[in-house]
Write a protein that binds this DNA or RNA. Structure first.
Lengths: 227, 227
DNA sequence: TGGATCCGTTAGGAAGGCGTCAAGATCGGT
DNA sequence: ACCGATCTTGACGCCTTCCTAACGGATCCA
């Protein structure tokens, strides 16, 4: 599978140069020139890696890191012209994974990208099929089977929510993260969407939709898939 | 819990300087001056982080990385005097997580260490689970399980308090800090909030809520989580 | 001994979050 | 252009959570 990279820089020339290099190396490249565009692209496309320039016109670079980190663990490599040590430390402590000072050598960037992707890739994969007493979920096939073996039809949004919850089953998933990942960061507060779709999922999956056993609500915090 | 660092360098002076710095910053430091000693120490002590100089007398630095990586995913930060780009790329592709060229600034090293540990800590829930005799707390999943395995439901405020106490378990946490972090600096003096929520937490977690064993009050100062 | 201070406990009203339903808007395929 | 499926939006009632106040117990010191 190709690695999808989101490159964020306000300079179109640099953007173009990086895109050409990365594309030639087999990466799928998406670009953004502003912080807001970067956050939108991050939420919509779920890149496997983010290359982030700190000097953006609209938002502070660390603000972009903070926002991304509020719902995602995607590796972030900061590329910056600032040689100030404080910036470096600040970015790393905010949640960046690596920090390169411009000008940097392309082979080094590529090596650091490989290292970042290697780290993030391995621990994520768990079982692809999650079975409960009442139904089973095949994450790879994007399919849900009831106990009788009949297929349960889910709409795209229903599946998106269920997938996130099941991938982190047992863990509490904040409403912020669900909304950011599915509708985008701008919808962070539209919690009524979640209420509607969770009700639909429960009607389709739970033996007693009024008394949820698998799709648990943690009031004020988020939702949890309990198996 | 303190982070255990294995520092590998053939120069005793540098070793000593790094040890002093890291110990002062709260790390538990173990040192090795040769590749073989490093591998032995890595196998015996399972450090949380390795700082590795590439110029070792007995083994090539990349050989140490390869050997460690054959059985461990511990973060490795390479410290090297070689400015050659090829070395850097080679080390990263062999399995190193980061690469700093000497001379480097101490604050930057510390920031990169924090970033490396943060990354390695989150995916697996080894360090995020705190188990006691009566219950276990999963900080990443935001979940508390009683000894019987049943889930203990906590409200957002209860969880916020417990999380702060458990993250600094063993240490005294002042009432001011709890109030500032959860309700904001303006509520610094509303200590009755804490009394109410600590009582609720004890009722849910302590075997004998009237005689707290884990959530300890330090009269006039603050609270402490004792495991 | 008496007062002052700090803490634990309880309970009820206020506020906000959640489940539910249904209708309008939008999308996608024929 | 039509129709079904899907998504959005608003409203309502219920339930959880939070805040607040009051009271009693413990400790310390004058």
């Amino acid at each position: 599978m190709t690695t999808r990279v989101l490159v964020v820089d306000d300079d179109a020339h640099i953007l173009r140069a990086i895109r050409i290099h990365l594309t030639a190396c087999g990466y799928a490249v998406r670009t953004a020139q502003t912080g807001r565009a970067a956050l939108r692209a991050g939420a919509e496309e779920h890149p496997d890696l983010v290359l982030l320039d700190l000097g953006l016109p609209d938002l502070d670079g660390t603000a972009v890191i903070t926002e991304l980190r509020s719902w995602s663990t995607v590796p972030i490599i900061v590329l910056s012209a600032r040689t100030d040590g404080a910036d470096k430390i600040n970015a790393l402590d905010t949640g960046a994974d690596d920090y390169l000072t411009k000008p940097f050598s392309m082979p080094e960037l590529l090596a650091r990208m490989r290292a970042a992707v290697r780290r993030s890739g391995s621990p994520t994969d768990r079982d692809t099929v999650v079975a409960t007493r009442d139904f089973s979920i095949d994450l790879a096939a994007k399919r849900v089977l009831s106990r009788a073996g009949t297929q349960v039809h889910l709409t795209p949004t229903e599946w998106a929510i269920l997938e996130i919850l099941v991938r982190d089953r047992g863990a509490l998933v904040s409403q912020r993260r669900l909304l950011s990942e599915i509708w985008g960061p701008a919808y962070r507060t539209e919690t009524n969407y979640l209420r509607v779709y969770l009700a639909q999922l429960r009607r389709k999956l739970e033996p007693e939709p009024a008394r949820p056993r698998y799709l648990i609500t943690e009031s004020g915090m988020g939702y949890r898939f309990q198996d």
